[in-house]
Simulated assay, not measured.
Amino acid sequence: MADLATAVTERLLIDAGIREGMRVLDVGCGRGLVSLLLARLVGARGQVVGVDIDSRSLAVARETVQDARITFVEGDFRSLSSEHGLFDAAVGRRVLMYQPDAVEALRGLARVLRPRGLMAFQEHDSTVAPTSLTPLPLHEKVRAWMWRTVEREGGNVHMGFGLASALTRAGLTVEQVRAEAIVQTPAMHHPVGAILRAMLPRILERGVATEEELGIDTIDARLIEERTQADATYIGEMVFGAWARLPR
């Protein structure tokens, strides 16, 4: 079964209209997880181009993602050259929050879309406080590590609430905005350990926590134990999703 975050992303892409035969640009593709989702949706007749400025992440994507429908390109999506052609849609997950000017980034992206082209973005937001009827100190500590890292990197920790506005100001017509919570229970888990492991170099570089404090190898088990002992349901963050189209 897909993890909770992947399921949220997949629903967004399907509802936004990503379908068989489309040519889709995955901006800030990282290690290619969303690219793989897109490849399944566009089918045998479709094509996915993943673009990212991080050569290390792209190296992992090229090594682990073996799919003829997916091409990975190193570069800045805001200034993608015409050699890559036009796309039916552009999608991104946790990308706009790292842009100095999200509106200008979206305007740049619009230049590589076909008329009435689709944009679908998913952005997390730290504004909504973590929620549980029972105190869960380890959960709150892990959440703080992640968001503190993003903030120290200069990321916009409130991009979710600003998503619809950014799309509108970039000249697109927003068709839907939604917000979904990542809900965890004693029996429903979120792969926090894998996320922390991927973020580890960034966490250490920004001085947010030490490897010993993180305890990545046991963090998932400890989080499950904390929820189980408290018999608690936990909402750690809100995930905003929106899709919009270029005007006619």
Rank of each mutant, 00 (worst) to 15 (best):
E20G: 00
A181E: 08
F87L: 04
V27T: 09
E237T: 10
V34E: 04
A120F: 05
V103R: 07
V239E: 08
V174K: 10
V183Q: 10
T64N: 14
V192Q: 01
Y234P: 08
P186N: 12
R148D: 15
P191S: 06
W243L: 11
H189G: 03
A2S: 04
M22Q: 14
R245S: 07
A90G: 08
F87T: 10
V208E: 05
I53D: 03
H158R: 15
L86K: 15
V239Y: 09
T168E: 13
G75N: 10
G50W: 12
D217T: 11
L113N: 05
M97I: 12
S132N: 05
A170F: 15
E151L: 14
G171C: 12
L196A: 10
S81C: 03
G30H: 06
S82E: 14
R227M: 12
L109S: 02
V34D: 04
S55Y: 11
A144G: 00
R31F: 00
E104K: 14
R114E: 13
V239P: 00
D231W: 00
Q66D: 14
M97E: 06
L223C: 06
R62M: 13
G28H: 02
R107N: 01
A44V: 03
D3Y: 06
D26M: 03
V42W: 00
A16F: 01
L138K: 06
Y98H: 15
R56A: 14
D67M: 11
D231T: 02
